[in-house]
């Protein structure tokens, strides 16, 4: 199967900026070939999953406001079927980490992630969630949520514009689209096997 098959209804393949990452990801997943029957089932499942990603309402600070803007009239992520924001982590598919995560919040976020049902995805929105951002020199900030939970998509900005968040959502859709229902990608497998991610300490 060609990598160019990763088509989502919202954006052309050429319009995405860094396709190499996804291509490597696909070739890693498809090592050893894919059974045509399994492939079709995969496509079907991934079509469903990538088109129905329900976010958890979770925001710690500023980026949450821009996340609300994405849901409001101007940007309207309902067009892509993302508007069913679930309040209970059990029913959500993706957690948007909007805003700074601090020491006191870190275990709570991890708990939230663990409460979500598989398949689950994480999007780190804004500088704070990616690396600590403007609060990197603080004593109480976690230097990026990937220290606590595995992140699928990073959306830089402080805060990112709604368009940037939409672009990140499209990236997540594409990522879901190439997943293999019968085979976990390596990073997630490690998490699944060890049971938990190791928490590292960020240095200021």
């Amino acid at each position: 199967m060609e990598v160019k098959d990763i088509r989502i209804p919202n954006m052309r393949y050429e319009d995405f900026n860094d396709n190499e990452y996804l291509e490597n990801y696909v070739s890693e997943l498809r090592e050893g070939g894919v059974n045509i029957f399994v492939g079709k089932i995969n496509d079907f499942i991934n079509w469903g999953r990538s088109n129905s990603v329900w976010p958890l309402t979770f925001a710690t600070s500023c980026c949450g406001i821009e996340f609300m803007c994405v849901g409001a009239a101007r940007s309207d992520f309902a067009r892509f079927g993302w508007e069913v924001t679930r309040n209970s982590p059990r029913q959500a598919d993706v957690i948007f980490v909007c805003g700074t995560i601090v020491h006191k919040m870190a275990p709570v976020l991890k708990r939230l992630y663990e409460q979500m049902a598989e398949p689950k995805y994480v999007m780190a929105i804004g500088g704070c969630a990616i690396s600590g951002g403007p609060f990197k020199s603080s004593y109480h900030t976690v230097m990026g949520v990937d220290k606590i939970i595995p992140v699928d998509v990073y959306i830089p900005g402080c805060p990112p514009r709604p368009e940037a968040i939409l672009y990140g959502m499209m990236q997540l859709s594409r990522k879901i689209k190439v997943q293999n229902f019968f085979k976990l990608p390596d990073e997630r497998k490690k998490v699944a096997e060890s049971g938990e991610l190791k928490v590292e300490n960020g240095k200021p």
Binding site: T60, V102, P134, S137, S138, H140
Partner: peptide, 23 residues
């Protein structure tokens, strides 16, 4: 409280005045 305590006041002590503004 404190789930979003980022220690801004302490950070300001290490920043110059124009740098503080963005916080």
């Amino acid at each position: 409280f404190g789930y979003i305590h980022r220690g801004i006041e302490k950070m300001c002590e290490a920043y110059t005045y124009p740098q503080m503004l963005h916080l």
